[in-house]
């Protein structure tokens, strides 16, 4: 069954308290290479049948209106994952 993956991140100018706390904790465990962490969300929308352009458009709309809060978050990626086709990602990632 194909799935559409939606990635949502806090807007760059918005404070990300989670990322801030994690970046503070990393060096205490010896992970010193990372100067920043931002924590986002990944959604997987399962589709019964083929992903048409119309369905993908619906996913983009859902991502922009419901899965993300446009006041504080950006949808950074909407793409199709079709595990039945191959290991490869079907359809190039699209920035929204």
């Amino acid at each position: 069954m194909p799935r559409i993956v939606v990635d949502v991140m806090p807007k760059p100018e918005i404070l990300d308290p989670q990322g801030k706390a994690i970046v503070g904790a990393l060096p205490r465990l010896g992970f010193t290479a990372f100067s920043g962490v931002r924590q986002g969300k990944r959604f997987e929308l399962t589709v019964d049948g083929e992903v048409t352009e119309e369905i993908l458009e619906q996913a983009r709309n859902a991502a922009a209106t419901m899965l993300s809060n446009p006041v504080i978050e950006d949808v950074v990626n909407v793409e199709v994952l079709d595990e039945t086709a191959s290991e490869d990602v079907a359809g190039a990632p699209e920035a929204v």
Binding site: P17, Q18, A21, I22, A25, Q39
Partner: peptide, 12 residues
Amino acid sequence: GDYLRAGAIARF
């Protein structure tokens, strides 16, 4: 703040 997961940072 329960960030990452509750207890996940404190345990270290």
